[in-house]
Design a protein around this nucleic acid. Structure first.
Lengths: 347, 347
DNA sequence: CGCTAAAATGTTATCGGTAACATCAACTTA
DNA sequence: TAAGTTGATGTTACCGATAACATTTTAGCG
């Protein structure tokens, strides 16, 4: 491995001079600079970031931890974060926690060990608190994405989950649905709680009681198998005419189960969900969704993070950005005869 | 920041003793071990990987560089790589090159700087050669995924692109299509070249000439805008009755353009492509695809990489794994009247 | 009890960089 | 021309860990 000492020896200068050339600091004569550069070129020198960050206490590397690398919401978010990071001269690494606290914990350790300068994190849920406290204790700046965690003050970028839950349920009610069920992420995830609240408010507003067992709380991540959803649907005495899914992954899984049971969407059961399916909505504009600005989540979150890192003064007040979503009406909702086909929720 | 010296001072031992406790090496009395561990706990000590890898010359961190983080083929592949890495006690970081040589170059630098122990890489194309040579020169083990690069010998996991191209075109021919077009990735990407070859062979076999301008070569990544595809379609004197897309991203973009022009798939134009759309094929099993074993690409590639890393002996011969794909017939292909509705390519 | 082997722990040098301070020549300026 | 600047470069110590070797303590045994 080529080091600055090799370069220095070849060039007949000291290591410090080489370091100065690399970092463009101090005064170096043009002749020396040219010579050192030429030799670095020849020897294919690459600075050892490991050594450098050991002394500098910074890496110019940022980290994005998402909970589901297969979910287009998060990959689109990742592209936003990436663009913002690169624009500011930072490198970005990704990790995937799978909505799993242990994997998240592993990644927190990796982040601390690699001494990333900052972290953008979609926490697995409220129990992520100790992980965030660890980051805080180690003075690693972080910004939360998509989910808040009670007990910690920090910058955060959120969607309007409550509003979304309300809009989705209202949309169904406006189309005449009265038996509206909800499949949601874990109540330990703040966005899931708000989506539930929004759904409940809309139900109350439309004077819909919500049958026993209509709300099913599981995980936002892909289920290891579909039996939980199957049991939920099979366990209802009366099948709902419409289902709200807490995110796109759950919606797809509901579709799979319904298909398996020979139940057609939207003819027999209507379906709506949070988050679009990325470009795949183009293949077949089918699912009616409350689409969130995934790219902006990443882009703005990254900007906030970088501001924190560069803010020498220490911190201004914590910022909270709430990005509005948009109801996109497609074909997955049927009009029921007794319904008002005009959708009040869309105006 | 807490260091082993802080621990050592608190525990009244030397730093070396602390190091031994951390790494479970050497002989340590139970009493000392317990005491040191307790103090590490109390102080929230995290080993400084930076310092450690400076002296150890290894990080236990591996890197996966993919070309499109929005493509479910690559995210599924990533999950496979992740599982294999974790199973072997390695940590995995991701990077996204966007089919872009400059971004790839940036990541190569990051990889060298962070001293990753090995790299799994889907190269942007043949011009990635210098990047791979750089890795080789720095003795960083790597395994190529999905694409070969002429001029470098190494381990590689491939799909059967030629076979896939043949199968897709044959399938269309068997359904009576004669005017079959191909939109493909850049010819500087090995898989694109093979897909083209497969397509051409099938055309020849079915005695189809292939009209002027029927083959369009662009990038596998998402187009910055759709005007290239639009110009291609608009430029044809006679619209094809079927299109083979070199991957799922291109297929989706073709659909978008066709939709914009009011051309229906499959009623007016049939469409098939490489790679499935992940779980979103479940929403609407529409696109007929040559599906590749994305997860296996990552899993097996990672296994090969780890074997290389752990192989003290130095290297056995380079390995090349070719994973077969599967034609999944769905609804995006129309039967033309003069066609044989029975699909010979599917037996 | 004294000697030796094994166990437990400590010391020193090093990994590859950079900060802080030191040096030395060339050039001003009074 | 002596003193003060400035520019160009070198020296030394250190970032936080570990390897290799050194030393001390404990245990075992005749």
């Amino acid at each position: 491995m080529v080091t600055i000492y090799d370069i220095a020896a070849q060039a007949g200068v000291s290591a410090m001079t080489v370091s100065r050339v690399i970092n463009n600091t101090g005064k170096i004569s043009d002749k020396t600079r040219a010579k050192v550069k030429r030799i670095m070129e020849q020897l294919g020198y690459v600075p050892n970031q490991t050594a450098r960050s050991l002394v500098l206490h910074q890496t110019r590397i940022l980290f994005l931890l998402i909970t589901d690398i297969n979910n287009p919401f998060y990959t689109t978010l990742a592209r936003g974060a990436e663009d913002a990071a690169n624009k500011n001269g930072f490198r970005l690494l990704f990790g995937n926690s799978d909505e799993n606290l242990d994997k998240e914990d592993e990644y927190i350790t990796t982040i601390l060990m690699t001494r990333a300068d900052g972290v953008l994190i979609a926490p697995a849920g409220d129990p992520s608190l100790p992980h965030l406290e660890t980051l805080r204790r180690h003075k690693v700046p972080f910004v939360l994405l998509d989910r808040e965690v009670p007990g910690i003050e920090c910058d955060v970028v959120l969607g309007d989950s409550k509003e979304g839950g309300r809009r989705l349920a209202q949309h169904l009610a406006a189309r005449g649905h009265r038996r509206i069920a909800l499949i949601n992420g874990s109540p330990s995830v703040s966005s899931a709680r708000l989506r539930l609240q929004g759904y409940q408010e809309a139900m109350k507003l439309s004077d819909l009681p919500g049958e026993e067992g209509y709300v099913y709380e599981t995980s936002f991540g892909p289920q290891s198998d579909l039996s939980g959803i199957e049991a939920w649907l099979d366990g209802m005495s009366l099948l709902p005419t419409a289902i709200v899914a807490g995110n796109n992954v759950l919606a797809v899984e509901v579709i799979r189960v319904l298909r398996k049971r020979g139940i057609s969407v939207p003819d027999e059961v209507s379906l709506v969900c949070f988050d679009d399916l990325g470009p795949y909505s183009e293949v077949d504009p089918f699912l009616t969704v409350f689409a969130q600005q995934a790219y902006q989540f990443g882009y703005m979150g990254m900007q906030m993070l970088i501001e924190r890192i560069q803010d020498r003064e220490g911190s201004g007040p914590w910022k909270k950005i709430v990005l509005p979503g948009e109801l996109i009406i497609r074909r997955s909702v049927a009009n029921l005869p007794d319904g008002n086909s005009e959708d009040r929720s869309a105006d």
